[in-house]
């Protein structure tokens, strides 16, 4: 499944949903497989008990901890996937960028981990509201994040920051050297098109070749 943009705009929105759901289904499969191993280990313990072997409470505590962790992880993924699914509900609505990124970062966790990328983002940066087609907004920010993740050949930090300006919100996604990304020009062109569709723009920071800046009109701002 291709994670990057395809040459066909109509297909690309579907490809974005496909890439995300394929990646997330892999994560969910891992969650369920781990829960399956927990179940198997408990079964092993019960067989041992039937044979008169005492169970170490520390082992039980370890098993319970892993079960709780994986359940929480699975619930988080499913909730975020549900949020993405509901982006098709309205043609236009207001979205809080912090919540959009919180959702995308969970859904893109495997894509980041495969690239050894750590995304640094403060989810408390709430209140940056954008009015847009939700699918286009998620699609745009997905490609923007993925492009910057791909600026590293073997892992690194991607720093995500939201800055309120007079009429807009500036999203800064900083990684390594964006000029080094394979097919970067075509991918940036797709990002430009998507940003344009919601009245925004995207550019590589003139002072930092590793930083992609996406500027979107903010709710309450005066349209230029």
């Amino acid at each position: 499944m291709s994670e990057g943009p395809t040459p066909h705009a109509d297909h690309d929105a579907l490809a974005f949903m496909g890439a995300v759901t394929a990646s997330v289904s892999h994560d969910l499969s891992n969650v369920l497989s781990t829960i399956d191993q927990v179940s198997g280990l408990i079964e092993d313990m019960l067989i041992a008990v039937e044979r008169g072997v005492a169970i170490d409470p520390a082992r039980l505590e370890m098993v319970q901890g892993r079960l709780a962790h994986q359940t929480k992880r699975g619930v988080t993924i499913v909730r975020k996937l549900n949020t993405l699914g509901h982006t098709t509900d309205d043609p236009v609505r207001q979205e809080d960028l912090a919540l959009v990124f919180s959702t995308l970062l969970v859904l893109m966790e495997r894509m980041a981990s495969r690239r050894r990328i750590q995304v640094i983002f403060d989810p408390e940066q709430t209140g940056h509201m954008v009015e847009a087609n939700p699918v286009t907004l998620y699609h745009l920010l997905y490609h923007a994040l993925l492009l910057v993740m791909d600026s590293y050949s073997d892992g690194g930090d991607v720093t995500l920051d939201l800055v309120e300006e007079e009429n807009s919100t500036s999203i800064s996604i900083a990684g390594h050297d964006l000029a080094s990304v394979e097919g970067g020009g075509d991918r940036l062109a797709v990002i430009h098109v998507l940003a344009d569709q919601i009245g925004g723009k995207a550019m590589i920071d003139a002072d930092d070749p590793g930083c992609l800046e996406v500027v979107l009109p903010r709710v309450g701002g005066t349209q230029e």
């Binding site: 891992n30 497989s33 781990t34 191993q37 927990v38 198997g40 280990l41 962790h69 994986q70």
Partner: peptide, 11 residues
């Protein structure tokens, strides 16, 4: 998947 691999190893 750390949890998965450790549990499978134990089993």
């Amino acid at each position: 998947e750390k949890d998965f691999v450790e549990l499978l190893a134990e089993r």
